[in-house]
Amino acid sequence: MKSRGLFARLALVLGLVFLYVPILSMMVFSFNNSRLVTVWDAAHSPTLKWYAALLSNGQILGAAWLSIRIALISASGAVVLGTLAGMALARFGAFRGRLLLAGMTAAPIVMPEVITGLSLLLLFVATEQLIGWPKGVGAVTITLAHITFCMAYVTVVVQSRLAGFDESLEEAAMDLGARPLQVFLRITLPLILPAIGSGWLLAFTLSWDDLVITQFVAGPGSSTLPMVIFSKVRFGVTPDVNALATIMVLIVATGIAIATVWMRYQQRRRERDLQLAAAANLSEPLQS
């Protein structure tokens, strides 16, 4: 048993090294003076010149701003639709269209992106022909496409959260006189709020990061950040992309660190409450 535990632990360490070495090397070389990215110019490094170049690159900044706006709207739209779909799947039992909805929310998660992208573009071309909308592809069509594939993820997150807590909570509220809308606002929504929050973050990240689907439904003048990066790196390595990667990793790491501290805090509070309950158990009014 010992030796196998050792093997697995070794694999874990090596696996984590494998996961982090590329990211770390990007971060290190972002401070390298040389244009040659992978050759360390010891005489003039570290330097922040690539960060300066990045921050004065209007094309990248413009693309990043477009990506942020699209991701904000897409994540919010996906959360609304995904929550509705998750509610229906987790709470409505067998209804007409259930199988259809379940299939259509699960499929985009595993669907190869090239197919989703192609099909959405062909849809927009067809609707433009038929009803004159949308006038060409651009930020609007990108957002519609992102909402569609992001909502699938939100649905899964919300649905599994709903499946994880007792349906009798909602029944109890109804039993005590709350109408369905009140039940949703006062019971269901507060309980699935963590799932909605993480669903939103996931949707934001997916939208922010998407390249393949976006390429299909984007038009001239609507280049998102991944599109700009892709066209830069496709024909060689550029040091300012290293700087960009470093900034993004740092933002994510900071966010995760804050979330971890917050979760630790919550955990400690829960443990205190459990102790309180245990103490209450001892003073149970048995002989009243």
Binding site: P22, M26, V37, L211, V237, A245, M248, V252
Partner: peptide
Amino acid sequence: TSFLLRVYAWIG
């Protein structure tokens, strides 16, 4: 973190 940038890292 970005899928694209993680793939890009391997070019280097």
